[in-house]
């Protein structure tokens, strides 16, 4: 259609396209992960966080926050989980780890690398999810019996995702 006076043309900027590309990669990672069976709801590799970490290192916290929020909203739409309990758990986890990653931006990267940031974000993620689940979904302290399992998984997958993110960054820059 030829642009007319009544048509509003919004030209996506280079940043918009970049964010969309990263968000698409993050959404693909979380959809792939949804297909992996998990022994316990809440224990997940969190592959999308590899993308978030790379965006954080290359383009800063604001871009990482955009990709993370887009990932949660669009990913839940694609998985049919929008506004389901899992959506709110994913949301609170993403927002809390973004807050922690934001606070850690004050620490220089040569001192704290992707692995440390990944582990910190993973703990923030599962910690917030546990609290929300305790307040809302499973109102019983028995839930915290599983906390060591969740924390152990956060540590393991946090380290692994950090290593993968560090390797990917080394290759492409």
């Amino acid at each position: 259609m030829a642009p007319s006076a009544a048509t509003l043309q919004v030209e996506p900027s280079a940043r918009d396209r970049r964010l969309a590309r990263y968000a698409a990669a993050a959404i693909a990672a979380s959809l792939v992960e949804a297909a992996i069976p998990s022994p316990l709801p809440g224990v997940k590799p969190g592959l999308a966080n590899i993308v978030i970490l790379i965006v954080l290192a290359r383009h800063g916290w604001r871009d990482a926050a955009w990709v993370s929020v887009l990932r949660v909203v669009a990913g839940s739409l694609l998985a049919g989980q929008f506004l389901a309990p899992g959506f709110f758990l994913a949301g609170i986890g993403a927002l809390t780890s973004l807050a922690v990653l934001g606070a850690l931006q004050a620490v220089p990267w040569h001192w704290l690398g992707p692995i440390g940031r990944s582990v910190a974000a993973a703990f923030a993620h599962i910690g917030a999810q546990l609290l929300l689940a305790r307040l809302w979904l499973v109102p019983h302290d028995g839930l915290f019996n599983l906390a060591p399992v969740f924390f152990g998984a956060a540590l393991l997958f946090g380290i692994l995702n950090g290593i993968v993110a560090a390797r990917l960054m080394q290759e492409k820059t």
């Binding site: 620490v107 990267w109 040569h110 001192w111 704290l112 690398g113 692995i115 440390g116 940031r117 582990v119 910190a120 703990f123 915290f144 906390a147 060591p148 924390f151 152990g152 956060a154 540590l155 946090g158 380290i159 950090g162 290593i163 560090a166 390797r167 080394q170």
Partner: peptide, 24 residues
Amino acid sequence: MKAVRPGDWLVIAAGLLATAATAA
């Protein structure tokens, strides 16, 4: 740049400690 930096060890140690403490 090194893949594992001093702060990373610190965070990993804190994570181990938190996991062990909640398990106990």
